[in-house]
Simulated assay, not measured.
Amino acid sequence: MTKDYLVKALAYGGFVRAYAVSATETVAEAQRRHDTWNTASAALGRTIVGGLLLGSTLKGDDTITVKVQGNGPAGLIMVDSNGRGEVKGYIQNPNVSLPLNEKGKIDVRGAVGTEGVFTVIKDLGLKEPFSGQTPIVSGELGEDFTYYLAVSEQVPSAVGLSVLVDTDDSIRSAGGFMLQIMPGASEEVIDKIEARLANLPLVSSLLDQGKTPEDILDTIFDGESLMILDTMPVEFKCDCSKEKFGNAILTLGTKEIQDMIDEDHGAEAVCSFCNNKYYFDEADLEEIKAEITGGN
């Protein structure tokens, strides 16, 4: 399996920033962990690809959280990514499988819904995280990322997100691109890009044919010279741990922890993002309780 990676580039003399990512194995890992059905896989997968693209604009440990809360059966979709190409995510209802839409494609809009809120929270290591919120305008998600960038960050952009789900619900290919128009770009450049995007095949189809992120950018810019700035690996990676869940149990207080010991004889914590399970037996819980009471 080819390793997933993301490419950052400049085009049209620096007036267009371009990003493209192949994320097939990353989205496949999310599908396996959450056992998502085909429509849920596409919705979660597109959000993960969009999260990777937005995350790639950050530095190292800075993080970005994308929350899609629509009125469709998928419920909340939440994705965290950082500047190192690491991403994790989940969908509230993984078991969504809808009939194909009128174009014969997976009905992501039907799963997400057409009304709701699209939220991006950036933690740049400052005192307060930056939070931007826009209404869901499409439910197809690519347009929703595009609208968020235009309205909340005032960056005219085009975002394409694509996930190809196989008949057995596994992920055949997944990836996307993000173009950002810099101040001073001419109308001619913008018109050229719009014309190319109107005829662009699905990114997942290009990846399924063996194309790379560089090939995708070459297809979009059609002979224009590209300056590749950086390539970086991307992967599904969760930073949960038994210690972190232990700290969360600590905040419940002694009475609730004692109830877990007396009634359940232990506790199981499940990470929403990656489905890893952590078991705390009675001795573990007594130890946590002793931290609160100072051993008394």
Score class of each variant (00 low, 15 high):
282 E>L: 09
13 G>Q: 10
221 F>W: 05
139 G>S: 03
5 Y>D: 10
91 I>M: 14
96 V>A: 02
260 M>V: 02
11 A>N: 07
292 I>Y: 07
77 I>W: 01
53 L>C: 05
87 V>P: 00
129 P>S: 13
282 E>K: 12
222 D>N: 15
271 C>Q: 03
89 G>L: 08
98 L>M: 02
89 G>V: 09
292 I>R: 06
83 G>K: 05
64 I>H: 01
28 A>K: 05
63 T>L: 08
187 E>R: 13
51 G>C: 07
53 L>W: 04
256 E>Y: 06
240 C>V: 03
188 E>C: 04
124 L>H: 01
159 V>K: 06
185 A>V: 15
37 W>P: 00
182 M>E: 15
132 G>K: 08
38 N>T: 09
54 L>W: 04
121 I>T: 15
5 Y>R: 14
250 L>D: 06
94 P>H: 04
199 N>F: 05
75 G>V: 03
54 L>A: 08
278 Y>Q: 04
16 V>L: 13
219 T>K: 09
87 V>R: 00
157 S>C: 10
230 D>E: 15
3 K>T: 12
84 R>A: 10
149 L>H: 07
82 N>P: 03
234 V>A: 09
186 S>W: 10
257 I>K: 02
217 L>T: 07
185 A>Q: 12
249 I>L: 14
264 D>Q: 12
133 Q>L: 14
122 K>W: 03
5 Y>K: 11
145 F>R: 11
154 Q>C: 07
39 T>E: 03
176 G>R: 02
166 D>A: 14
223 G>W: 01
1 M>K: 13
226 L>K: 00
134 T>L: 08
251 T>S: 13
162 S>I: 05
236 F>Q: 02
138 S>T: 07
63 T>I: 12
204 S>Y: 06
11 A>K: 05
119 T>M: 13
89 G>I: 05
236 F>G: 00
46 R>A: 03
70 G>M: 01
230 D>I: 04
181 I>T: 13
213 P>G: 11
120 V>E: 11
